[in-house]
Write a protein that binds this DNA or RNA. Structure first.
Lengths: 218, 218
DNA sequence: AATTGATTGAAACATTTGTTTGAAACGATC
DNA sequence: GATCGTTTCAAACAAATGTTTCAATCAATT
């Protein structure tokens, strides 16, 4: 029952299954291929997980937990300026998405699940994503003028996350649109800096506009 | 051969197949289900398309072409200000993505193809997406200071598209994060206005910063 | 009305796939 | 070393699925 990181048949199957589900999808991946890649017998899937679907769910949840653990948010204290927090959040988010080149399959697996929600999706959203979303919102609350509606807060958070996620979900398209040499230079640091700068510029403008509006009215 | 919009068995199969591929994916969709939904015989798929895969490719290409035709960019003339062009581009993009509530399957199908590229992906990227990308870049060139690098132009374009696409690729997550009542109010107009405002605020700040920098240097 | 070509229909085929089974191998415990 | 629970293995099962076949049907043309 303990799914610790031992090199046991169980986790070998989980890892192989995750990679294959990520690349080919649930239906295109056969239990036989998974077991062959994991060096296990066909019956091992049913022995350890009951059936193929429960193996899938466990693989997805495991992949997302791994993604979160892989890159942790920086330690902030009460004096950390919110601009720095936002920069750190975005950088960490990119680390999780683009991570080591051998780990992108985990993000692919999770994104695939989001577009084909099963039981794993709601669980991940509630237990893993929501806390991160709350953190991002608390940062934005410090950066946006007081009185900003919850809705605008949400949309702004979505704008940030959307910019980051794009580089994963549209990767084949991006490769088709920009030069291969340029694409090769897209790394976490560069992309994070771009998104951070663009977002902060927009937030600054909103804050300035609000201040001007308040000043003009009085 | 002519795939015109007649209510022929061929296009009925294409439409049914598109919807089912979009919801369940390629492998999970059976030829039998497609034909039943289209009111056709099982053999019709092989008769009209040769095999299941060529039916899929044709359905994807058709869906994306339909998406483009559904919402056309406004007519601009030489005097149209670039800010208005950007607003129009973003609004049209959202129309295409979120379109009529009965047509979202087309976007789903295309996004699915992007994450599982087949032969259809490269074709769509080259013949359909690239022209749109060029238009967006030409608009941004008018809004960003002279001397802005191609790379920054690209990243800015990706930031815009990423913000829009997010509402489609992460829909189940968004539903989980915000109140159902609030989500119900997300429509094309509201989202387009948010993305446009945020982006223009950022672009204005960059332009102002560049002007200030140039002024200070002289 | 006959003919010709395109389309549809029901059934069958060959393969693949998830799952099960029951015996063998293994490992720790007494 | 015998025993008991756990794990592995090869083989088989049953269901589903893409594809094919060939006769029936239809529609237009002569």
């Amino acid at each position: 029952m303990a799914d610790n990181d031992l090199d046991t048949t169980r986790v070998r199957i989980l890892e192989s299954a995750g990679q294959m589900f990520a690349e080919r999808g649930f239906e295109s991946t056969t239990v036989r291929d998974i077991c062959q890649a994991a060096g296990a017998n066909v019956a091992a899937v049913n022995y350890y997980f009951g059936d193929k679907e429960r193996l899938y769910i466990e693989a997805v949840v495991r992949a997302h937990r791994w993604r979160l653990d892989q890159a942790q948010l920086p330690d902030w204290n009460a004096t950390t300026p919110p601009r720095e927090k936002l920069a750190g959040f975005i950088h960490t988010f990119f680390e999780r998405i683009l991570g080591g080149k051998d780990d992108t399959w985990r993000t692919r697996l999770v994104m695939r699940e989001f577009m084909n929600p099963t039981a794993a999706c709601a669980e991940i959203a509630q237990s893993n994503i929501r806390p991160q979303f709350e953190i991002l919102q608390s940062i934005l609350r410090e950066l946006l003028p007081q009185g900003t509606s919850d809705e605008e807060l949400h949309l702004t958070a979505f704008s940030i996350v959307g910019q980051c996620l794009f580089y994963h979900v549209a990767e084949p398209i991006i490769c088709n649109l920009v030069d291969g040499a340029e694409f090769a230079t897209y790394d976490v640091d560069k992309l994070a800096e771009h998104v951070t700068k663009l977002t902060l510029a927009a937030l600054d403008a909103k804050a300035a506009h609000a201040a001007r509006g308040a000043g003009a009215r009085r």
